[in-house]
Structures are given as C-alpha cells and as structure tokens.
Amino acid sequence: MKNYLLTEEQIIALFNAAAEHYELYVPVNSENGQVFCWEKTARLDKMVPSNIQPTASIKKFFFPNSEPMFGFKKEKQEIELYQAAASVPRLVLGVHSCDLGSIKVLEALFKDTVDDELFREKRQNTVLVGISCSAKDWACFCSQLEINSRFSQDGDLFITPREEKYILSVTSAKGEDYVNKYLENGETVAGFTPANDLGEEETFTLDFPKIKEVMDSGFELPVWEKFARKCINCGICTFLCPTCHCFDVFDEARRERGARFRCYDSCMFPEFTRMAGGYNPRSAKAARLRQRYLHKYKYFVDNFNLIACSGCGRCIRHCPVNVDVRQNLNILQHSGSEGEDD
C-alpha cells in the first residue's frame, strides 16, 4: 500500500484534476444540516468533510433506487430491445469505512453464480475515496463488526488527516491508476500505521458467531414476535441499509415504448412475497422482521461467509419507532433456545 502526504490544496487539486472525465460527488451540508445523499458538484472548493454520513447509503451509486435494465419498442407483433446505456465514470468522496465495508457484501451477492453486469459496470466505473470518520454517534456500531472507522482498505483511495496535512492511501489498483494519472508531485511516506478504533470500550458486545448459533436453531423463538411489536413495516431500514439488496422487477410502458426496471423492494412489505394466487409465505409481520435479521446475520453468513451488516447505524437512527437492531441482537445472543419474556 502506497501512502502520500499531501496538503489540503493538493488533495483538492487531485480531485479537481479529473473533473473533466469524472462526475464528482461530495457529501455537503445542506441548509437544514441534513445530507440526504452525496451531491454532484462541478468542482471541489474545500476539503472533503469527514463528519458526514449521508442518509442514503453508498449502494445508490451501484444499485440505484430504480434503474432501467433494458428498453423495448413494440411494433405490431414484433419487439425490439435496447440495452441500458453505459454509466458515467464517477468519483465519490468522503465515504466512511462502514459504507466501504458494505460494498464487499453487495459485490459477493451480485457476482455469485451469474455476474450482474449492471452492478459490476457501475462499480468498475466509480472511484471511491474514503475518509477517516469523525462522526461516530450513538447509533454507530461498526466496531462491533470489526470495521475500523478510522481506516479502510475496501475502497480505492483513503484519506486520513495527519496534523495540518493528509495521508492519501492507495487501496486498490483502480485507486493507483487514478493517482498515477492525476497526482502531481506527490510525496510518499513510509511507515504509515493507520489509526484504529477497534477494541475501544462498548456498552455491550455483540458476539456474532454466538448470534448465528442462536439463529441456526431459533426460527421459532418467541422473541421475533416481541421484536415485531414495535415495527410499523415501513421500508426505511431496508432502503437506507447499505447492504440490503432485494429488488423488484417490473415494466413501465407508454404505448409502444417502455423499459424493464428494477427497484428496491423491501422484505418488510407484505407484497414482497405475496404470490399471484394470494398465498403469502411471509404474511405475518414477525415473519418478515425475522427474515430480515436472519438474512443479514445467518443466511448471508451461510452462503457467503460475510455478515450482511456494516454497523452504519442508519436503520437505528432513522427508524420511526426506535427499533434498535443492536438491542434485539443482544437479546438474541442471551436468549438461547428457550427465548425470553419481558
């Protein structure tokens, strides 16, 4: 891993240098102090902020809320298909470790069995620039998932502040290409040890292997019903979650022209599994919430050996009814097979 010591001006210049070829996205403070998503900007004029975690997660760039997969045109009995256009190269700045970690999950899923070109192409076309997080709040639990909020190698480049300057770490071949192409007079530093906030004291620890063990035999636990009592079955947690990836496929057409889309779907919605005949294998709210938890902390581990959660805390922060996944997992890990009553 190569590391450069750069001044603020140099960092800004490095990202502005490519503005012609890349769309530049930064998390910026809007007037009400809330950042919904990275916003496109023509030029970077000040340092990338390190304290902003946008509400919408990074998955939006590779797996958008809804995207056309192909277009079609009908003419009498004939059909003509059009392929989706290639994506524009993008440079996304100020990504936190949790979001970078979540991409591994999506990558594993989308390349499994058959490679999903829609996802891969966008990922290949995007340079992700991480930044050492200075915004850990009450809802964050990345360290529980062994994600270091101060440093991550899951993106392409990573910025760590050092005194008045910044260390720019090159964490992928794509990042290296970028730096070679656009960095002028960069001074490399040897012996950079990234900061690490893992192992800092937490109020409770989540033991994920233990949780999985409980889940392995815990399909019928009474706690699922208890967890679901609060839940209102909206899609906030799934839509904002950087690792949630379930989608729906549908057509939208006007007269002869149309397109087939895919868009986020949520296992929290009853329509998610309702079949045309009316039968719904997950008609109960508790069953849907259980599906979400099991998918993240058990099925995904079974299938990909990865936990489909990066501890970004969005589902906790934005839940309208304060469902806290950490508390629920904590109950699970202490519940064993007989469950627990309140």
Partner: peptide
Amino acid sequence: ENCIQCFACRKV
C-alpha cells in the same frame, strides 16, 4: 427527488 418511496409516511 429525495423521496425513496419507503412508505413510512403511509405506515405511520
């Protein structure tokens, strides 16, 4: 533009 159609408004 920012609405994600999570339907939380409807559910709540």
